[in-house]
Design a protein around this nucleic acid. Structure first.
Lengths: 307, 307
DNA sequence: TAAAAATACTCCATAGGTATTTTAT
DNA sequence: ATAAAATACCTATGGAGTATTTTTA
């Protein structure tokens, strides 16, 4: 014979009743088969678990030992069942969220995390900041589950990209710059021709970079790149230091860098920056799929003029 | 269906092979029944555990969760089996050893514990010092498993008493006592007639007490009890203080109390004190039975002139 | 398309039921 | 003497085997 959970369940019932007939009743079977199963268990273990008394049975010392473990095993089986079902429903698990350094300034970002955390408190999250290339690699080799990126499309095979929000880009100027006067009044991109540009390094954020270059060329000039900053925040610091101007997503204004003024771009050169959510095209983890759904829902909620 | 260990064992095998056919081979069954059991488990849990691929199967996220628990459950079953068998063999468990305050001075005492500890390191022991009445009660209500006592027989129903060793009793005299001269030379009990006696209180040690009274009456006198001490050690302290003489088991000399001299008793009044091991007549715990056996063996080994 | 899983069906081992005997105090 | 467990025997559920079809990327 080989031990089954049935033996353990039956054993616990008999131990609790100290009476095979009563235990059988409780289990919804007859006394003889229960006696047999208990005996089979004793034979399998090669241990006497009960002493047979004229009015029932009593656990032996070894039976007492087995009872402790038996109860735990049944509890463990229940736990395993519940945990597995929670995981299947996406209520439990772990999710690694990647993002480019410019993403977390957007109001969408905390919104998504807050709603996901409160909806699925048993899913632990890890945040990982990387360049676009690193994020794509992470998604591919399963070290990252979803990534907030600014590249318009992740052309890369096997990955899917969901557009979340689109925000205007604004010109960032040092306070002492001649264009700094008239804050918040829109200016035409063309007036920046000849200005030294500070840009977020292309290798870590090709989406933003290429968008700016393209828009400039549409406006009739090729920007003079004075400096490439390794992180979006350094870009603003360099602008504040007076080393040049930059064009950044409007949400970066949250950073509140001293010595900077922002001006929107006027109509003809409506430069915008997207925030997209990249993930694997085939995603098995329900928790991850739920995260994506909730991020898209939050994006709709955050978009002005959506139904 | 109801979950059985079979499902868990099969599941782990399939998860490890990532291949139902190979897992079936490893389990010594055919592929179709294994497929069926896995499907039955998935139905029971209402969770898909594997994704079916053209070359085998792959765990889903939920399957991954279940695998962790499944392995632990199987480990737990193995552990329960082993622990139960160890308990049945008396290799594991707990034992409460009671003793009267005069017992632990005998060489037998540490000998028993040392040999039992090294023979059954997984059996934990607790020592409990009580008076004879407390020990008997403890044995009865199962708070004590075995007890070293000095009463010759535990007449009490349901208990068994195994004689272990018998040791001579010696007269304890204050150094300034007139009989203190001639240490280690035997004296006749009769010479103590009229001396004030310090005795270990009868209620906590009736065996010793009654033995002394009886011996004195055989020697032709009734001892004058100057004081009853609550513990055997206090008896010696009172003797050292010069409040009287006493008769104690020879092993008490180990105590090395200042200001006391001991003299053996001469032949006609060979007063001895036993150390017995009391236990329940029906003892189910194998560990306890083993303790008793080892104590008896140690007693034989410690008895001079045994084969 | 090719390997592997799922289905359809059969068989038999054994869990469980019924009737009776044995055991333990 | 009596309640309860064990034994004997029967039934039938369902686990496992064989042959075949369906699924998946």
């Amino acid at each position: 014979m080989i031990m089954e959970l049935r033996h353990i369940r039956y054993f616990v019932a008999v131990a609790e009743e100290a009476h095979i007939t009563r235990a059988a009743e409780k289990l919804g079977i007859q006394q003889p088969p229960l006696s047999q199963q208990i005996r089979a268990l004793e034979t399998e273990l090669d241990v006497q678990l009960f002493r047979r008394l004229p009015r029932g049975v009593a656990l032996t010392d070894a039976g007492e030992t087995f009872l402790e473990d038996a109860r735990q095993i049944l509890k463990h089986v229940e736990h395993a069942t519940a945990a597995t079902q929670r995981t299947a429903r996406g209520e439990q698990g772990h999710i690694v969220v990647g993002f480019t350094s410019s993403a977390p300034f957007h109001a969408l970002f905390p919104k998504v995390f807050r709603s996901f955390r409160s909806a699925t408190p048993l899913v632990s999250m890890r945040l990982e900041e990387r360049g676009t290339g690193g994020l794509v690699d992470g998604l591919r080799n399963e070290t990252i589950d979803v990534a907030f990126i600014r590249s318009p499309v992740a052309d890369t095979m096997g990955l899917a990209v969901h557009p979340l929000v689109e925000e205007p880009m604004v010109v960032a100027l040092p306070l002492e710059h001649e264009l700094a006067e008239g804050e918040d009044q829109s200016i035409n991109l063309a007036v920046l021709a000849g200005e030294p540009f500070i840009l977020y390094r292309r290798s870590v954020g090709p989406g933003l970079y290429d968008g700016i270059i393209t828009a400039c060329s549409h406006a009739g000039f090729t920007p003079e790149i004075a400096q490439e900053a390794p992180r979006i925040t350094s870009t603003l610091n360099l602008v504040a230091a007076g080393l040049g101007v930059s064009i950044v997503p409007a949400s970066l204004r949250r950073l509140q860098v001293e010595g900077i003024t922002y001006r929107p771009l006027s109509a003809p050169s409506q430069l915008t920056a997207p925030i997209n959510l990249a993930c694997r095209r085939v995603e098995n983890a329900v928790a991850t799929r739920r995260f994506i759904d909730m991020a898209r829902a939050a994006a709709v909620a955050v978009t002005p003029g959506a139904p």
